[in-house]
């Protein structure tokens, strides 16, 4: 009884001791972000991870907010909740998305045992998805030392994608260029808290690397345009079947501090 009385006194005291805040100061609007570069969000995910669809929703919201030219999500299936692509059977509609490289990409950032988790623009290590929005905002406003353009062309006659990456550096840079193939619109299983969703649409799925996985070493001179070419074969087997109409290539220039700039371009069919 005494506790209740004291509690009531406390509440009444607090209520009368609050500072007055004018109505105009109660809501502070953030300035609109005008991105000065493109950034990459590496989302480590898995088809049996029940909370991972939440991360996909966050990524969609960030792309919606800032534009697909500026926010480039890459969903990398990895870890305990990934399902190995080697167990797929496309002919039976059995599609799994974890490549062995996915675990290598994840392991390069360190050891984790919780999913979903991500890395924003190659910087700051693993971040929970509730930290992505703030990190994205910060990265989009960071000045970049180079611009990156990528041109991916698919030739059905050869079954390959020819990729040209063009970099305009604004400083001398010793870095690495990653050139990754991603695919959207993959309809495959995904678990959520209700169970299996059999027709879940997987977007921005990491499929393969046309460069060395950790990136090809590049040495860039201020003001001097740099070009690099890569070729990668389109995969078409019962284990893995790419839909060339839904493929994109992401070119990422980075160094030991993180990603400097990037571009994503849809694969265009030639011939």
């Amino acid at each position: 009884m005494l506790k209740k009385f004291l509690g009531l006194c406390a509440i009444l005291t607090l209520a009368t001791s609050c500072s007055d805040i004018s109505e105009n100061d109660r809501l502070i609007e953030m300035d609109t972000v005008k991105p000065v570069r493109s950034i990459v969000i590496e989302d480590f995910t898995g088809q049996t991870c029940v909370n991972c669809p939440d991360a996909h929703t966050v990524l969609e919201a960030l792309v919606e907010q800032y534009g697909e030219d500026y926010v480039i999500p890459v969903s990398i299936h990895a870890g305990s909740f990934g399902m190995a692509a080697a167990n797929s059977n496309y002919d039976k509609g059995n599609i799994w998305l974890m490549q062995p490289e996915g675990n290598q990409i994840q392991d390069a950032y360190g050891s984790i045992n919780s999913w979903p988790i991500g890395v924003v623009n190659g910087r700051g290590g693993f971040a929970n998805l509730d930290a992505w929005a703030k990190a994205t905002r910060i990265e989009l406003l960071r000045e970049s030392e180079a611009s990156v353009s990528v041109i991916p062309d698919y030739d059905p006659a050869t079954g390959t994608i020819e990729i040209e990456t063009i970099i305009h550096p604004y400083a001398d840079i010793q870095g690495k260029l990653k050139v990754w193939v991603i695919e959207s619109g993959i309809v495959a299983r995904q678990r959520n808290t209700e169970g299996w969703i059999t027709d879940y649409r997987h977007d921005n799925v990491w499929r393969a690397s046309a460069s060395a996985l950790e990136g090809d070493a590049v040495s860039l001179e201020n003001g001097k345009t740099f070009t690099m070419k890569h070729t990668i074969a389109v995969r078409d087997s019962e284990k893995e079947r790419w839909n060339t109409e839904n493929l994109s290539v992401v070119a990422i220039l980075g160094n030991s501090s993180g990603y400097i700039n990037a571009q994503r371009r849809a694969v265009q069919r030639v011939n």
């Binding site: 991870c49 029940v50 909370n51 991972c52 939440d54 305990s80 909740f81 045992n113 919780s114 999913w115 979903p116 988790i117 929970n128 509730d130 808290t193």
Partner: peptide
């Protein structure tokens, strides 16, 4: 065995 738990927003196994 490995078990998994997803309380609190992230899934972990081990």
């Amino acid at each position: 065995q490995d078990i998994q738990m997803c309380a609190g927003g992230q899934c972990s196994s081990g």
